[in-house]
Amino acid sequence: MIREAVFAALTTIAFGLLYQVRTSILWIAGGIGALAWMASFTVNLMPGAGLLGDFVGAFVVGALAEVAALWKKQPVTIFVVPAIISYVPGYLVYESMVAFLKNHFNQGMHFGMTAVFSAASLSLGLALATALLRPLLRPHHILNTDS
């Protein structure tokens, strides 16, 4: 778990560098990536967790990013985008692709639909985090009139 969390933090930092995020705030993004990965890892230990791990990970990313954005006075996306990359179901899409290429249609559909649902749970996690935390953190702003 620690090894994976360290890799998640390093991945977040590397993607942050790739997306031109300033070094001085990058370590926060890395921390968010590691914490979110630990949370989703813990959830995934539960039997039958399914895609709940992705949802929890995305929720933690979204929630911590809102806090960090308010603290550092930066756009929220700066923290969200590098940290969410580790959850992108790239491997599922790849497996579905290979299954289709090998003429295993059912398997391809299975992996493909799982990838779609995984992406949906990611967006649900991010959306809920923003929708819940924004009014709490910035009570003087209406949802769309802040930085």
């Binding site: 996306t77 969200v80 969410i84």
Partner: peptide, 8 residues
Amino acid sequence: GLLFTSAI
């Protein structure tokens, strides 16, 4: 990633 996040 940014497109996806911005869309949400």
